[in-house]
């Protein structure tokens, strides 16, 4: 009875030895000769109790290292074609889209779609117009057409529309420094700043 139990235990231990050496191989990344005989004897304490190398206790192993060891690993080598397809397949690529130049602001936009820069400006200005309309009418009905007069514009004298003044200027594609009206001031100074000539190195 006891001998059979010893045999079964020895079978298990041999199996464990094999797995452990595989682990050591993987961890140390060595593909050389088999490990020294001292390591082979690990775990044979039951058969040969006179040997000095003790059987390691269970708490000396990192159980998480051994759990799941040799479970989910690739069985076959992935071929070059499959590897490259997985790496550079069509659905991982950014496609090149055709772009057009906006005739108003010069920014890029996709053909068939509005220009994002111009539309953002229009949306921003229209939101302020909606606010003014809401302030003016509230819940009362709108019975006339609306005429929006933007900042810096003069409203017409005679109109059959309801004039609504928007606090924002009409959007323009020029930059701000080009849009601000400026005239150079007349200076009375007669001094002239003389720019020194560049020295010619001979």
């Amino acid at each position: 009875m006891l001998s059979r139990a010893y045999l079964a235990l020895g079978e298990r231990l041999r199996c464990f030895e094999h797995n452990f050496f595989c682990l050591v191989k993987v961890l140390s990344n060595q593909h050389g000769p088999p490990p020294p005989s001292a390591l082979v004897l690990v775990g044979t304490d039951l058969h040969m109790p006179h040997l000095s190398i003790p059987y390691p206790k269970s708490d000396e192993y990192d159980s998480t290292l051994l759990d799941g060891f040799l479970w989910a690993v690739p069985k076959k080598r992935r071929s070059r074609e499959k590897r490259l397809t997985r790496k550079h397949s069509a659905n991982k690529q950014l496609c090149v889209k055709k772009l057009l130049m906006c005739t108003n602001c010069g920014g890029p936009h996709e053909p068939g779609r509005l220009c994002p820069i111009c539309y953002a400006l229009v949306k921003d200005t229209t939101a302020s117009l909606y606010e003014r309309v809401k302030d003016k009418f509230g819940l009362s009905p709108i019975e006339k057409e609306i005429l929006a007069v933007y900042k810096g514009e003069t409203p017409p004298r005679e109109t059959d529309r309801v004039i609504i003044e928007v606090p924002k200027p009409r959007p323009s594609f020029f930059t701000r420094n080009l849009r601000t009206p400026s005239t150079p001031a007349n200076s009375d100074s007669t001094t002239v700043d003389v720019v020194p000539d560049t020295k010619v190195i001979s």
Partner: peptide, 9 residues
């Protein structure tokens, strides 16, 4: 409509 046009001239 009385809003600003979304398309350029």
């Amino acid at each position: 409509n009385p809003l600003l046009p979304v398309l350029p001239r």
